[in-house]
């Protein structure tokens, strides 16, 4: 074991344990780590904003390549910033409507293709009682229908209708449980990554050998 002499590694370990202390309860170390990371993320964002966005996506196209039309969205963006002056805050609506309208317009056909057409097509399966795949298809067929019934808003979940909706909710819960289990493993491996950082980079204990 050979403890690192690199001061940065010490800082990293200090903050690692500060954050972990939150598991016990809120304490000054966690508060410090929280505000440090908020500050560092803002500072990082500022630098990246300047070097990766302002210069290559605005300054160079407008002032070096002559794409003066980009002044229009710049004005729209500045109108958003004008919110800090209460008298002119309504100006930000132009830019907001530009973005929101565009996002909504894009969403409709794409959603129709990916979340309606694709899903409908994939549910049109070959049903059969004789093969394993056929029986699975029957289960999927009923599963999709019952889940759709569950999401009905204009009818109360009573009687037969309520029974079908209940089957839908069972499907949903099994599905969510499967997602839960699937994601857990990925999360655990990230935790192991932090442990390895502390052991290898800080304490110099090498587990790979």
């Amino acid at each position: 074991m050979h403890i690192s002499m690199n001061p940065w590694v010490w800082i990293g370990v200090f903050f690692t344990f500060s954050v972990l202390s939150f598991l016990y309860k809120d304490n000054p170390f966690y508060k410090l780590a929280e505000h440090v990371t908020v500050g560092v993320s803002i500072g990082y964002g500022l630098v990246i904003w300047w070097t990766n966005s302002v210069i290559p996506r605005f300054y160079i196209p407008v002032f070096e390549q002559g794409q003066w039309i980009l002044i229009i969205p710049a004005i729209l963006g500045l109108m958003m910033v004008l919110r800090i002056v209460p008298k002119y805050s309504w100006l930000s609506r132009y830019a907001i409507c530009f973005s929101v309208g565009a996002g909504s317009g894009m969403a409709i056909p794409r959603s129709m293709q990916a979340q309606v057409l694709r899903q409908l097509e994939a549910t049109m399966l070959n049903l059969s009682f004789t093969s394993g795949a056929g029986i699975n298809n029957i289960i999927i067929f009923f599963g999709v229908l019952t889940v759709l019934v569950y999401f009905f808003f204009s009818k109360e979940h009573k009687g037969v209708f309520g029974g079908v909706a209940k089957v839908g909710i069972w499907f949903l819960m099994i599905g969510f449980g499967a997602t839960f289990g699937y994601t857990v493993m990925a999360r655990l491996s990230l935790f192991i990554g932090r442990v390895l950082f502390v052991l290898q980079d800080f304490l110099g204990i090498n587990l790979a050998g």
């Binding site: 599963g143 999401f151 499907f171 099994i174």
Partner: peptide, 10 residues
Amino acid sequence: VPNMAAKRGM
């Protein structure tokens, strides 16, 4: 199977 059905319905 059941997970796929639930996801599709959702």
